[in-house]
Computed example of a mutant assay.
Amino acid sequence: MAYTYSLQAMKDLENEADIKQLVDTFYDHVNHDALLSPVFNEIAQVDWEHHLPVMYNFWSSVLFGTMAYKGQPFPKHLRLPVTGEHFDKWIALFKATVDALFSGKKAEEAKQKAQSIARIFQMKMGLLPYV
């Protein structure tokens, strides 16, 4: 007897509901990560009820051009005691989250933008040389 499997293609990031799913899932992973959770919860003492909607707006602005995000993300990160290892873990979790939930042009763009943002932050923090 032959078995047939139907693999349902994952959809791309298309709307605000997708952004919310991505952000919520990603930060759930962050909150369970031994390296990143202390930075967010003990050092930065993130107020998740406030932070998550800001991140929805940030990623909506980055990926869909909504201009919903108003702010400057870098200064908030400058004071944190993070290393390249923290950025590597953040990127790995972000990319894994995108890959687990979405597939397509916007999903790839989200991963590329996250990688670029992390690189810029690391350069500004002196963790990577400017190139």
Rank of each mutant, 00 (worst) to 15 (best):
G65I: 02
V82N: 06
V98A: 05
E14R: 15
I120K: 11
V30R: 05
Q8A: 13
F64K: 10
A96F: 00
V23S: 01
Q21R: 13
L35V: 06
K113D: 06
Q115Y: 13
F26V: 02
L63I: 03
Y130D: 07
E49R: 06
W90R: 05
L35Q: 11
V54N: 04
M123D: 01
Q21K: 12
F58I: 09
V39W: 03
H29Y: 10
A68Q: 02
F102C: 02
K20D: 00
T83I: 01
H32T: 00
F64I: 06
V54C: 05
W48F: 08
K76C: 01
W90M: 03
P81H: 09
I120A: 14
M10K: 15
V39P: 02
A100M: 12
M10A: 04
P53K: 01
E14A: 14
P53Q: 09
D33N: 15
W59T: 02
N15H: 11
L63Q: 07
M67G: 09
H50R: 11
A110D: 08
G71P: 09
V82C: 14
T4N: 07
W59Y: 01
A114Y: 07
Q122E: 13
Q45P: 03
V54A: 12
T83Q: 09
D28V: 07
T4G: 06
F87P: 01
W90T: 03
F26N: 01
L63F: 11
Q115L: 15
M67P: 02
S61R: 09
K89T: 11
Y3T: 09
L22G: 04
V46R: 06
P38I: 04
S61T: 06
H86P: 06
E85L: 14
F40L: 08
L22N: 05
T66D: 04
